[in-house]
Design a protein around this nucleic acid. Structure first.
Lengths: 295, 295
DNA sequence: CTGAAAGCGCTTACAG
DNA sequence: CTGAAAGCGCTTACAG
């Protein structure tokens, strides 16, 4: 009897129950090690609770994201989203979906009843700024991500504000959260006469681009310029010199977000959106040091 | 009329059509940059063809894989799978699924009518061996992955055979395809009196572990030991010294596999399973050099 | 050409 | 307590 292994049709059960037992997971770049870790954490929690994960990669493109959110309609009971851009159109797409949403690492304007799991971007960027100021740097630059993303804006604002408290005016170059974005911003920054003696790159991929640019230009770290990267990296302690970074939990962020989404689904909890902030941690290695005494 | 935005129920359509317009994608480790790239390539092709991607991460565990394949039953029209282990039980799980399968990077015993997209593991490992032999190395080691995986076995066999042709007997240490696996194997290898003068690590994560072990032991590269890694890395040219690697297309592998799966779904193509092999490419940087003259 | 009915494969509430 | 029927929301084949 049991050996005939009758398999009930999942699809028929979904139609009857009005649920799909699937969660959407929409990330800007699954090859970014941070988001890969978020995916791992989310998938693990979701599967543990009997949910499948429908993964979409938007390639940091609002257009692709718009398409993806339309296509996912009716496929999932809830959504984990790291939006490509912090804009109102995305909010409309989410409303049209009609399922609970938890925002991961990036939030949206007026998130209403959606939950968010962010990190302490302001604290991390401020710690980086203070570290550089304490070392004696006065010509400080930021390779910033897009200001219409949460990490881009919060890291930018806090880094600039913390330096301003010490009467230091930060030179800012912007780029996409990609290796090329960091590379191009760095080439602009170090093509100038008054190149900075210290720089923060706003995410892991931009840091790779910055390091590649400094390598190509023959600018030595930390002798000529001190470098801090936002986000740790597998090889960060094995590069030359070992990289000072702002670290944070990554898999945990995906796991926490997924638990919040599952809570929304089971409790039928309404209520206002909650925001969780995870800590950051400055890891000082050898890519930061005092500025060359040239004054 | 159109403005009411009536949204037909996807689930009801699936029940009627007998299709879900979803593809399963089961990988051992989504935080491994290689698999992250495979996921990106697969997701892109699948979405372009109107399919969603249900992602599962098995954490290199046959048990988790077994559960995942059971849970995915009835959810997908086809499956992309990089099996945790090359064993017959997995084949049974796949038969039970009853949908077309394309194997990615790792194959199974007697794959029958399933397609595979692999790389030229033998050619890559042989090129690495020849490079080390040409430099004059005679004490050569391999940090090997599990032999019950396709890349583990093929890289091992080819590397050992190519060295044997030059009358060189390779010292082999095995480990999981993880950073820790590479680290522990390297610690065993370099704890010996007759430590090798050259070593190949069988995948990207094991290479990180190897480099960390050499760093911890104070063994200098390439002065004391030459190092080659299988798979390139974002920071491979920025570490000290820049790493010699065996490179290959990664996103492409996921894209090609997905196209093969879509072909099986649309053509109702039966026929024997096809195997595609993608090329590898030895990139010589500075972590390999002649052995120290000590004879 | 248009419109009502049957059926996809379950679950659930109800009649016997 | 058991078993037949209704219904989830579509699509498709058929009757009018």
């Amino acid at each position: 009897m049991d050996e005939l292994e009758f398999r009930p049709s999942e699809v028929a059960r979904w139609l009857k129950s009005g649920k799909t037992l699937a969660l959407g997971l929409v990330v800007p770049d699954v090859t970014n090690p941070f988001f890969a870790a978020v995916v791992k954490g989310a998938e693990s929690v979701a599967n543990g609770a009997g949910y499948s994960v429908v993964l979409c990669n938007t390639d940091e493109s609002p257009d692709r994201e718009h398409d993806v959110l339309a296509n996912i309609h009716g496929r999932v009971d809830g959504l984990l989203l790291a939006p490509a851009r912090d804009d109102a159109e995305t909010v409309e797409s989410l409303d049209a979906l009609g399922v609970p949403v938890v925002l991961v690492d990036r939030t949206l304007p007026d998130p209403g009843s959606t939950d968010s799991v962010l990190i302490d971007n302001a604290g991390g960027a401020a710690a980086a700024a203070r570290h550089l100021l304490d070392l004696g740097h006065r010509r400080i630059a930021l390779i910033s991500g897009p200001l219409d993303t949460t990490p881009g804006a919060e890291r930018h604002d806090s880094f600039v504000a913390t330096c301003a408290e010490a009467d230091v005016n930060v030179t800012v170059e912007h780029g996409e959260f990609r290796v090329q974005g960091g590379y191009q911003a760095a080439m602009r920054l170090f093509g100038r006469a008054d190149a900075p003696t210290a720089v923060l790159a706003a995410n892991n991929l931009m840091t790779v681009g910055l390091l590649r640019a400094l390598h190509d230009l023959g600018v030595r770290v930390p002798d000529v310029v001190s470098v801090i990267g936002f986000d740790d990296h597998l090889l960060a302690d094995l590069i030359d010199p070992p990289l000072t970074v702002i670290d944070r939990a990554t898999e945990t962020q995906g796991a926490v977000a997924t638990r919040m989404l599952l809570a929304r689904l089971s409790e039928a909890a309404s209520g206002a959106g909650r925001t969780v902030r995870l800590e950051t941690n400055l890891i000082v290695r050898s890519s930061t040091g005092p500025p060359r005494g040239e004054s």
